[in-house]
């Protein structure tokens, strides 16, 4: 499987996915008008990765902003991670939020209550 490296733009996040280390990173802003188009390669990659995942998959989500259109796609990404966990692989989602950003913390907690993958909420302190 290939390594994925999507460079961020003002409306879309930087995404890196490494099949060997099992580290996935989504970082920046996710506010595109058409988020399905943006997330399709990410979801497809995870779909393929789930058939032969690394022993441990660590997903770092560090978003400054995301729109509601992205929120559905992010859920799709997390649902793929749930599948990976089902094949007895270790999966953890690190959800980063900036100090005092209660909206972003709450958004992480919403996902945590829906998705059966362990979440770690990490506050970024300046």
């Amino acid at each position: 499987m290939e390594l994925i490296n999507i460079e961020g733009t003002p409306k879309t996040p930087t995404v890196t996915m490494n099949p060997t280390t099992g580290v996935v990173e989504i970082k920046g802003r996710s506010i595109p008008e058409n988020s399905i188009e943006f997330y399709k390669p990410v979801v497809d990659w995870l779909d393929e990765y789930s058939s032969n995942p690394a022993p441990k998959t660590v997903v770092n989500v560090q978003l400054e902003y995301f729109n509601t259109s992205s929120s559905k796609c992010i859920l799709d990404v997390f649902k793929k991670l749930e599948q990976i966990k089902l094949v007895n692989a270790d999966v953890v989602i690190n959800w980063y939020y900036e100090e005092d950003d209660e909206d972003m913390l709450e958004a992480g907690e919403d996902y945590e209550s829906i998705i059966k993958v362990p979440f770690k909420m990490i506050e970024i302190v300046d």
């Binding site: 902003y65 005092d100 950003d101 909206d103 972003m104």
Partner: peptide
């Protein structure tokens, strides 16, 4: 105030 600014932007 950063949280308010972010909320507003969202």
């Amino acid at each position: 105030n950063t949280p308010i600014r972010k909320k507003l932007y969202n």
